[in-house]
Nucleic acid binder design. Structure first.
Length: 426
RNA sequence: GGAGAGAUGUCCGAGUGGUUUAAGGAGCACGCCUGGAAAGUGUGUAUACGGCAAAACUGUAUCCGGGGUUCGAAUCCCCGUCUCUCCGCCA
């Protein structure tokens, strides 16, 4: 969530940012309500603290009187304190209510987009940051979409997934399963080469973790919830990996912290089905390698571009046509201040598929995470967090299969050979 | 899953109702001492939210988390979490 400090001191910037998310004047009133509630919180805190200070003083003097054997005087003071206690209790209740209301409002406000983020409401208004300049692959006349290729070469089976689990849970098999494992290994190796520490986190997280990275309360419907244990299946490795640093104060010289993780990702995608989501285009479980960075605020936008470069390199090595979009305010995620999306060209479907999202969250996550660093002058400040997919598998597989199909099999890009153990499917 | 023990600051560790304002030790930082270092020695060493224009200073909260008893709780009571030991189960 946004820092109160920033809302108060840089209100104009926050308001300008929220307008990029198409907030109208009546929605923007929340900002003023937040400031009013914060004023109430402060004065309530002061009153409560003063009442407690008074009680502490009296308790001490009662102790002293008891020590001196002045029992009667002590008894008299006890009666006085009892009155104060009622006052304290009601002050406590008022303050708790104020804090609760304030939190509710703060949770409802998305991150303020960076000044370089374009205004816009829909995906159509995203800016093409880097276009694909070369020609798209030319396919044989009998080229088919990946779901047909999957059947033809026995690479994955959706019907079987339905039998085991339900729709959107494909079973990969044979060379399809091997390709899946090869890509994971390739992406992890590239991330480690780029200086990211590999971690293998739990695939279930508790409520606190989901809240700290912003999945709760905003995206509750997106996650699978194990109610028996109150745990959530992770929708992305971002959640457990970023939470590794929760409640930490790191030394400034330990920045940046760079971590990478492979995990399966689970998404309910409730109500998001249609003709355009056939095959691997949208599934409930997919594999992804994520990169996460904790950065000094002065360096976070440079780091963002570094991550964009890393993902670009992966696409190049996989020899896939791609473009990079700078998302407009209306299309950005709740917690992000600036996001680049990567889309791969799926030649048989003749459409772009989103395969990576690289974002800077500034202090939006670290504010909830309480992830801070100690500056050279000893001051404690919130760090910036960033993350990106590097890369999400299912759609990459779709594009690899479609773009590289030939009359006698599907060619694999050279970079994958040592991971797949085969140069061609079929 | 059953039984028992435990959780105190960066770490170790004392603390069973009131000068605890959390002893003591280690570590760390800075200074003194030294040709330099070690040893010795002195000082400092949490976080959050407030008050003051700000600093100095100062208030409140925090001894695993939540609730309770009390004028007063690290300390007593209840609930929960986690760790360790033993047993059971088990890849």
């Amino acid at each position: 969530m946004l820092q109160l400090e920033i809302i108060r001191e840089e209100k104009a910037r926050i308001v300008a940012g929220l307008r990029k998310r198409n907030w109208n004047s009546s929605q923007l009133k929340v900002i003023d309500q937040i400031i009013v509630l914060d004023d109430q919180r402060r004065s309530g805190q002061k009153e409560l603290d003063d009442a407690r200070a008074e009680m502490n003083k009296m308790a001490k003097s009662i102790g002293a009187l008891m020590g001196q054997g002045k029992k009667e005087e002590a008894e008299q003071q006890k009666k006085a304190v009892v009155l104060l206690k009622d006052k304290e209790k009601s002050l406590e209740e008022v303050l708790a209510a104020t804090k609760h209301d304030l939190d509710q409002l703060l949770y409802s406000v998305p991150n303020a987009p960076h000044k370089s983020v374009p205004t816009g409401k829909t995906p159509e208004e995203n800016k093409v940051f880097k276009a694909w300049a070369k020609p798209f692959p030319t396919l044989p006349a009998d080229a088919v979409p990946h779901w047909d290729l999957g059947k033809k070469y026995n690479l994955f089976d959706f019907e079987l997934g339905v039998k085991l689990t339900g729709s959107g849970f494909p079973v990969y098999r044979g060379q399809g399963a091997r390709l899946q494992r090869a890509l994971i290994q390739f992406f992890l190796d590239e991330a480690v080469k780029a200086g990211y520490e590999e971690v293998l986190p739990p695939h279930l997280v508790n409520e606190e973790s989901a809240r700290a990275t912003g999945q709760l309360p905003d995206k509750e419907a997106q996650m699978y919830h194990c109610t028996e244990d109150n745990l959530y299946l992770i929708p992305t490795a971002e959640v457990p990996v970023t939470n590794i640093m929760r409640d930490e104060i790191v030394n400034i010289k330990d920045l940046p912290i760079k971590m990478t993780a492979y995990t399966p990702c689970f998404r309910r995608e409730a109500g998001a089905w249609g003709a355009h989501v056939r095959g691997l285009n949208r599934v409930h479980q997919f594999d992804k390698v994520e990169i996460v960075r904790v950065e000094h605020p002065d360096n976070s936008y440079k780091a963002l571009m570094g991550m964009v470069a890393h993902v670009s390199k992966l696409m190049t090595k996989l020899e896939l046509p791609y473009r990079i979009l700078l998302l407009c305010g209306g299309d950005m995620g709740f917690a992000s201040a600036k996001t680049f999306d990567f889309e791969v060209w799926s030649a048989a479907q003749q459409r772009w598929l989103e395969v990576s999202s690289v974002s800077n969250f500034e202090t939006f996550q670290t504010n909830r995470l309480k992830l801070r660093y100690r500056d050279t002058n000893g001051k404690i400040e919130l760090a910036h967090t960033l993350n990106g997919s590097a890369l999400a598998l299912a759609r990459i597989v779709a594009a690899l299969l479609e773009n590289n199909q030939t009359a006698d099999g599907i060619q694999m890009p050279k970079a994958l050979w040592k991971y797949t153990g085969f140069k061609k499917i079929g």
